[in-house]
């Protein structure tokens, strides 16, 4: 009954607090949004790993997608007198009061993964986020280099309509290919960031573009959609990675499997390691009193088939993606 064990394990993971070392020199409270995606789960496990590496006692509170739970958790952390509070904010607004309370208690706050809208930037120490526009740009620049001047019609699988990663990754990609007039986006539809939608929409693209013969490359706003689309390409009798180049964003483990099989070409990492840079900034601040910059941008690393995708897969698969 391995799967039963997994269920049990899952429920323990979902427990609100998971501490490691008691005799730690720093205690940090982390109000996590929840576990709505594989990336989020990976972020949580990477945070734990990074904390353990540094001997930090990390207390994680799962907010189950609710701001009120986050605010409760933050107040709890303040009452416990933690040394710092990390927040992955579920929404952008409504944080001023509780952050002022943290400031009152002289507890520094670091935002992870997302930023907030506030009238007073002093309420938080710094924000560690990726630059989603940059991610798209890296993907675009890779494609421009890969096709090297040849005419290339690109189909795009967008994220959820109106979501900021969808808007920014589209914008960044367009910037990345701006100088390459040989590359044209011919079709662009939303795949809602999901595998099944990615597959369905790609099926439509393939039909609409003469069975896929007119398509030179696919750009997907996340790997899940790319994984779905790869299946659609194969079912249409084409070879993903060769007949149609596949580039996407996120760097989840499954895309590395596809890359190792030659079915995907490149992915840009949205690193789940937001806590690492945050811990470093926090340590520096505690040691020297020097405030870090207001925004710490994480690295948007490009992975291609040349980067030993099998090895990366093995590294990543245990992170809970």
């Amino acid at each position: 009954m391995i799967f039963m064990k997994r269920i049990l394990l899952a429920s323990t993971v979902a427990m609100a607090f998971a501490g490691y070392a008691n005799a730690a020199d720093l205690t940090v409270g982390f109000s996590q949004i929840g576990s709505e995606s594989g990336w989020r789960a990976a972020e949580t496990s990477v945070s734990k790993i990074e904390a353990k590496k540094r001997g930090i006692d990390l207390k994680i509170a799962d907010a189950q997608q609710k701001q009120e739970n986050q605010i409760k958790a933050i107040r709890g952390f303040i009452a416990q007198g933690v040394d710092a509070i990390f927040i992955a904010p579920v929404v952008a607004t409504g944080w001023d009061t509780v952050l002022a309370e943290a400031k009152e208690a002289k507890i520094p706050v670091i935002l992870l993964d997302r930023t907030i809208e506030t009238t007073n930037d002093d309420l938080y120490l710094t924000a560690v986020t990726s630059d989603t526009v940059h991610e798209g740009k890296v993907a675009g620049e890779w494609l421009a280099k890969a096709v090297a001047g040849k005419d290339c019609k690109v189909v795009e699988l967008q994220g959820t309509v109106g979501s900021s990663p969808a808007i920014n990754r589209k914008k960044g990609f367009e910037e990345g290919i701006a100088s390459a007039s040989n590359i044209k986006i011919t079709r662009s539809q939303t795949g809602d960031f999901t595998r099944s939608k990615g597959k369905e929409v790609m099926e439509g693209f393939l039909k609409a573009e003469s069975g896929g013969k007119n398509i030179c490359a696919l750009y997907a706003h996340n790997d899940d959609m790319a994984v779905g689309a790869i299946q659609a390409i194969k079912e249409a009798g084409l070879k993903p990675g060769k007949d149609i180049l596949v580039v996407s964003v996120d760097a989840v483990p499954d895309i590395f499997t596809a890359m190792s099989e030659g079915e995907a070409n490149a992915t840009v990492e949205l690193t789940p390691n937001m806590a690492g840079p945050a811990f470093d900034a926090l340590k520096a601040f505690k040691d020297s009193g020097k405030a870090p910059p207001k925004w710490i941008q994480t690295e948007s690393k490009l992975y291609t088939q040349a980067d030993d995708p099998k090895k990366v897969y093995e590294e990543k698969k245990g992170l809970g993606y």
């Binding site: 394990l9 899952a10 594989g38 595998r195 809970g320 993606y321």
Partner: peptide
């Protein structure tokens, strides 16, 4: 369902 998959996509 999320408990069963532990929040990740099980391939």
């Amino acid at each position: 369902a999320q408990l069963i998959t532990e929040g990740s996509i099980v391939t």
